[in-house]
Simulated scan of single mutants.
Amino acid sequence: MFCPPQSSVIDGLKILHYPVEVCPKLAIAMSTSPSDGEILTIKQVADYLKVTERTIYRLAGAKKIPAFKVGGTWRFSKADIDAWIKQQSMEALGGDV
């Protein structure tokens, strides 16, 4: 439902005041943080994959999981980890997925 703006005049300038509508369904559907750009730590990836931090260190060091270093510490793109999980699942099923 569209409501026309109300106006007021301050110091000779006409100021329009538009009403704000909140759409609860849209607010639920939209994420508050974009996970595509989310960067994870070793601990977060270990928790996410349900493995030990040592396993993640080993995989990252062997370049078997997508990772990069920032200031000498490993970091992981959540989008890359999700794609890696999908790839691992396809390989485990013989590529039939």
Rank of each mutant, 00 (worst) to 15 (best):
Q44H: 07
M90N: 12
D36K: 04
K78D: 01
S8N: 07
Y48D: 09
V45E: 02
L59K: 12
T32L: 13
P5A: 03
S7V: 10
G94N: 02
S31Q: 14
Y18S: 08
I39E: 09
I42M: 10
I85Q: 09
P19W: 10
G61P: 02
K50M: 07
I85D: 00
L59D: 08
F68D: 04
K63I: 09
A79T: 04
D47K: 14
G37K: 07
D47H: 07
P66T: 00
S31G: 06
M1D: 09
K43F: 05
P24R: 02
K78N: 02
A62E: 09
K69F: 02
R75E: 03
G95K: 06
R54W: 09
A79F: 08
H17A: 11
F2N: 11
L13C: 12
V22L: 10
S7G: 11
D80I: 00
S33R: 13
S8E: 15
H17S: 14
H17K: 12
I42T: 14
C3K: 14
S7F: 08
A27R: 13
Q6T: 09
Y57M: 05
I56L: 03
T52K: 08
D11R: 11
A46L: 04
K25L: 15
K64N: 06
G72N: 03
W84Q: 00
L40Y: 07
K78W: 02
E53M: 08
K86M: 05
E21F: 13
Q44A: 15
Y48K: 12
K86C: 07
A46Q: 02
D11W: 04
D96I: 15
A67R: 05
M1T: 12
F76Y: 04
I15R: 03
Y18I: 01
V70N: 01
K63L: 03
A83R: 15
G71R: 06
K43R: 14
Y48M: 05
